[in-house]
Computed example of a mutant assay.
Amino acid sequence: MTIDKAVISKITTALKAQSISEIEVIQSLWGGYGELFRAKLTGSQYSSVIVKHIKLPQPESHPKGWNSALSHQRKLKSYQVEANWYQHYAQLCGSGSGSDNDRQSENSVPQCLYIQRSELETLLILEDLHTLGFDQVLTHADHTAILASLKWLGHFHGQFMANQFTTSQPSTVNTTDLWPTGSYWHLDTRPDELQALSDQPLKMAANTIDRTLKQTPYQTIIHGDAKLANFCFNTHHDKAAAVDFQYVGQGCGMKDVILLLSSTLTFTEPHKLIEQYLDYYFSQLASSINLHQPDINPKEVEQTWRPLYCIAWADFQRFIKGWSPKHVKINAYTEMLTAQALSQLTTSSK
């Protein structure tokens, strides 16, 4: 893959580098919307940076056949949201700059070094997490990495927590330029997959599931795509940092938790272990709430969110079963939780 010379020039100018000594292409962006690459620099204070060059064509095809104007608009919006996140919100999380302790905080994210936007292109230059000690990208998570990811989520959710039924909003930011509903699979943006869903009880409950998650009294900013591939780890896997904020927005933290577990579990684990993962997440969430939102009772948040664990799984199953009915994430464990969610909703409506 050849990187446009104009892009190279913008990088060197923006970072006051003498030159770019090496380009390492990480991946093409989903659907042919540009590229993600690492640029190694000479003569700059940054030895390397991550560059996300977003170009916005209408793709001709989609790997799983889901190609539509709606899909295209969802991608456009996702890149706008991501640029907003890095430009205005990322600095509120753990910064990669400053002291050694700051370089690996509880909810580290790469900081935005430069951004340029036009109608058809966005150029994002971000800190390279590899230079900050997060140089491990895992395809299979060990126990330590799962805990580190849950810790990241707990501290992230706690920092941006708000109780929507209070008059004073403790949330740190106004999220109007993020997704009003975080996550890439939420119902409003997935009518095609809902139409294709053959599980009729789940289909009939889709709106109730969606409404239950949206109306929980405690809302936060969720990552929205908190799968293993979007975390980087230190050498020992006990600290994590997150990337790829295209679907960041308001929501219930359980949505991030179930997506992370969907990408790390083998689905043969004893239920007791998964409960321990949830316990650990809530302990980290409580620590963060106590630090950032002292007016919110973390026990009340846990009592509100724990029953939504199965609801969040059912919400994801609604999407995945309509999108890819033979997917590995559809299995006995996820079907059990979906059935539990439907039963729980039926009981609560009586």
Rank of each mutant, 00 (worst) to 15 (best):
L261A: 13
V243R: 07
K203P: 12
K272C: 09
K203L: 03
S262I: 06
H236L: 05
R211L: 08
S263G: 12
T220H: 13
L259W: 13
K239M: 05
I221N: 05
T266N: 12
K214V: 05
R211I: 00
I222Q: 03
Y277G: 09
Q215I: 03
H237W: 08
L261S: 13
T212P: 00
P201F: 09
I221V: 15
A240P: 01
C252G: 02
Y277A: 06
K214N: 15
N230T: 13
M254W: 03
L273S: 11
H237D: 00
S263N: 13
C232Y: 03
D256Q: 03
R211F: 08
Q276C: 07
F245C: 11
I274Y: 11
S198N: 09
R211E: 15
A229T: 14
G253Y: 07
T212L: 01
S263K: 07
G253S: 13
K255Q: 14
L261E: 04
H271Y: 13
V248C: 12
A229Y: 01
T266K: 08
E275C: 08
T208I: 12
I222P: 02
L273E: 09
Q200V: 15
T235I: 03
L278E: 05
Q219N: 14
K214A: 15
L273F: 10
T266D: 09
I258M: 03
L265N: 14
G253Q: 07
K255S: 10
P270Q: 08
T264K: 09
M254N: 05
P217C: 14
T266A: 11
V243E: 02
I258T: 14
L259A: 08
N207A: 05
N234S: 06
Q200I: 06
L259V: 06
T212A: 04
V257G: 06
L228H: 12
N230K: 04
Q219C: 14
K227C: 10
S262C: 11
C252P: 05
A240V: 06
I274G: 06
T212C: 09
L259T: 01
D225Y: 00
G251K: 06
K255R: 12
T235W: 04
A240E: 06
A242L: 14
H236R: 05
N207L: 02
Q246F: 00
T268M: 07
A205G: 00
T212H: 05
A241M: 03
T268P: 07
A205P: 04
T266H: 01
N234A: 04
E275T: 13
H237R: 09
A205F: 11
F267L: 02
S262Y: 08
P217Y: 12
I221G: 06
H271C: 03
D225T: 01
K227F: 08
I258L: 11
L202M: 01
V248K: 00
K272P: 02
G249Y: 00
L228S: 13
K214P: 00
H271K: 11
I258G: 10
A241I: 08
N207Q: 09
F233N: 04
Q276W: 06
L259K: 04
L278R: 00
L273K: 13
A241L: 14
Y247I: 00
N230G: 12
L261Y: 08
V257S: 02
L265Q: 14
V243K: 02
A240D: 03
Y218M: 12
L259D: 04
L278I: 07
Y247R: 04
K214I: 01
K255C: 04
